[in-house]
Write a protein that binds this DNA or RNA. Sequence first.
DNA 1: TGACGGTGGTTTAACCTTCAACTAGCAGCG
DNA 2: CGCTGCTAGTTGAAGGTTAAACCACCGTCA
Lengths: 164, 164
Amino acid sequence: MSGGTTQETVWLDHDQQRSWRAFLVGTTLLMDRLDRELREAHQLSLPEYEILVRLSEAAGHRSRMAVLADSVSHSRSRVTHTVARLEAAGYVARDACRSDGRGVEAVLTEQGLRTLEVAARTHVAGVRRLLVDLVDDADLRAVGRVFDAVTDGLIEGRPGLDIR
Amino acid sequence: MSGGTTQETVWLDHDQQRSWRAFLVGTTLLMDRLDRELREAHQLSLPEYEILVRLSEAAGHRSRMAVLADSVSHSRSRVTHTVARLEAAGYVARDACRSDGRGVEAVLTEQGLRTLEVAARTHVAGVRRLLVDLVDDADLRAVGRVFDAVTDGLIEGRPGLDIR
DNA sequence: TGACGGTGGTTTAACCTTCAACTAGCAGCG
DNA sequence: CGCTGCTAGTTGAAGGTTAAACCACCGTCA
């Protein structure tokens, strides 16, 4: 790129290293726990829950598979599988897309909505208890800024998502 | 617990919600990418890499399985599998523990160390480019504080790890 | 010594995610 | 119209993770 010289590695300083590791470990424990709580209380995994949330926020409680995939940043394949499970559980139905013959819309069912409404309480309680209530509002906003920056850095250059 | 009244759900406010979602999406993208870069450059997954790092930092480049598991916050079972893969790749060897007949120590091999030294450059460069260099130092420290708090909240009460 | 509960670690199967290959419909162009 | 290339979505297999059962060894207590 910039002249053919190999880039010297700049290691992380002590603070950066500590923050990074704290993030790794904390995230692992947190996600693990939130997933487990959701499963035990509602037989719903965190990714499944996230899909239900996006659907509940979409107009008409329905959304194209690709939109769903982008909104949770999962691969299309993964969303196909996740939706298949939700469909088997009766929480979502598939619907052919009117405007595009290739398209498929996922629709939240009545039962899906009811389940989500209950599960959301479990989930939010967990997020509060395990994260939000433990930290400064300012620090939490910093987390938001940081990961918005990360997302921007990674989304950019990805075709079809530059604008967003 | 506190009198039998059902806890009212306190939803997240707008800012909290935004931060939480930014975290979810950003983390997904970031971990995904770091894992991919490590795999493409060194045929090493992020969890595998993490294990190698812990081993390289341990006295004598060796560590008990349980210690390894705790330090990365993965289940023992998961570490068994991960180490098995690393062993198959020739990066780690297993060794019976002298002081405890049940114990097993994982030892970093010469080849493992060499691979790690190269992979670390890839990894750190990624962490910098995709995270550290994009954000304020202060914000990064806030991330550290937040996830330290999360970890404390989750580790505590877990038998054998209260003190830590 | 022997019985007992607890810990360290492995195993197996089920489950979820990823990857690559694939079908089908859209759009542009001759 | 047919050809080409691209996008939407699915499929099935391979790889990684989780969960539960399991074995072996420790420590204690009789």
